[in-house]
Nucleic acid binder design. Structure first.
Lengths: 217, 217
DNA sequence: ACGAAACGGAGAGATGTTCCCCGGATCGCG
DNA sequence: CGCGATCCGGGGAACATCTCTCCGTTTCGT
């Protein structure tokens, strides 16, 4: 069943797929991320494969079913978002500037691709998923807390408010093929950021929303 | 072919469908508006009929094809939006307050249902459509101009900026069945409005966007 | 109460998506 | 440089879904 001579050649073999295989896998994830944000989470898998420049069989080999691909994309986007938050925290010069940088970076990373997370036909309790989610939540909360502590961010907003508004604004408008250039998106995000600044110019209805609230809603 | 005794019974007959027929037609349009904003412009027509509480045949009798239904919904939403703008203008007390009222009202009227207008598979040049569109654009421009003239609205935003951001924020998140209550939407709209106030707290990238710009984009 | 119009359920046809199979090309390694 | 094994890609069958029409039944208006 397994090789008896060397101690653990199994793991070494398992972590060493062929070079072009991993490249193709990444191309698929990238293409899927783009397609998901543009055409929704139910875009045909064959088209994702075509956009990635690979055959459909390659896609099905890497991801047994649609959920596996979606999960990979969501985790990937969360990692990118978390990384953006870490970078924003590293530049501690101005707390609100860090928040601003994070928001625009997250939009560029296509954060709206993780909206399928809210879909019902999707296992929200996968280990990799909750880990990535908690990490993102913690980092974003820290970015916001710093800005609040510096008196630059209004107090009546939560992580959920920011993330949902961010995802909504950075999502391409429904009409397929209508790629409103990112220029528009960043204009709107900037307007949102201006509305987030302290002192608050109005009172918001309801209460600050956490990501926890969104999951139970 | 036609009755010879009375002068013009034809028109009278044409404008008098049965009472339950017009009621059903309205129920269909209402249901379609909800489904379009929730599940996108490609939701099965049979489900729209089911949600409206009518048989599918009734839907196909009233609207020969999908485009006819979409067009009716879009025109309906535009009329409601224009009406909201007129009401906002009527309350001339405070110009920005009028803008705020319009924004929240438009969200309640499900303005995001007219995003299929941007779709390619949709006749944008239908007479009813351009008429309704021009009316909306004119009214919204007037609301914004008044607020600008009063020094309450930043100068670097256009009608297109407002309408797109409004549509995006009031759209339900992608996950079907995830009806984030309107409370969240109005929170985010309020944040946007605070960012729209003069004096501007930052400079926006790009230039003010009109609806004309969006059509050619 | 009667004629006409509208209604609703069911089904045929068409369209599009998923997934597997197999010949051929590519990569890693000696 | 050559060999074995892995991976790739196009084509096609099975499956699911949506569209749209037919026809017996019900409801409206007079």
């Amino acid at each position: 069943m397994n090789a008896p001579t060397t101690a653990r050649p199994v793991q070494r073999k398992a972590t060493r797929p062929r070079a072009d295989a991993v490249r193709n896998r990444e191309r698929i994830v990238t293409a899927a991320r783009e397609m998901f944000v543009e055409d929704g989470p139910e875009v045909p898998l064959d088209e994702i494969a075509r956009r990635a420049g690979v055959g459909n069989a390659t896609l099905y080999r890497n991801f047994p079913d649609r959920d596996a691909l979606v999960r990979e994309v969501v985790c990937s986007v969360m990692d990118r978002t978390a990384h953006a938050a870490e970078e924003a925290l590293a530049r501690t010069g101005d707390a609100f500037e860090a928040l601003s940088r994070f928001v625009h970076a997250a939009a560029r990373e296509r954060i709206s691709a993780l909206c399928p997370m809210l879909s019902s036909t999707f296992d929200q309790h996968h280990p990799d998923l909750v880990a990535a989610r908690d990490r993102v939540e913690r980092l974003v909360a820290e970015v916001m807390d710093r800005a609040k502590a510096a008196g630059q961010l209004r107090e009546d907003v939560g992580v959920g408010d920011l993330m949902v508004a961010l995802a909504q604004l950075s999502r391409p408008p429904a009409g397929t093929g209508c790629l409103v250039h990112d220029r528009f998106v960043h204009r709107h995000l900037q307007l949102l950021l201006d509305g987030l600044r302290a002192p608050a110019r109005s009172v918001l209805p309801g209460t600050a929303t956490t990501l926890e609230d969104l999951r139970h809603a």
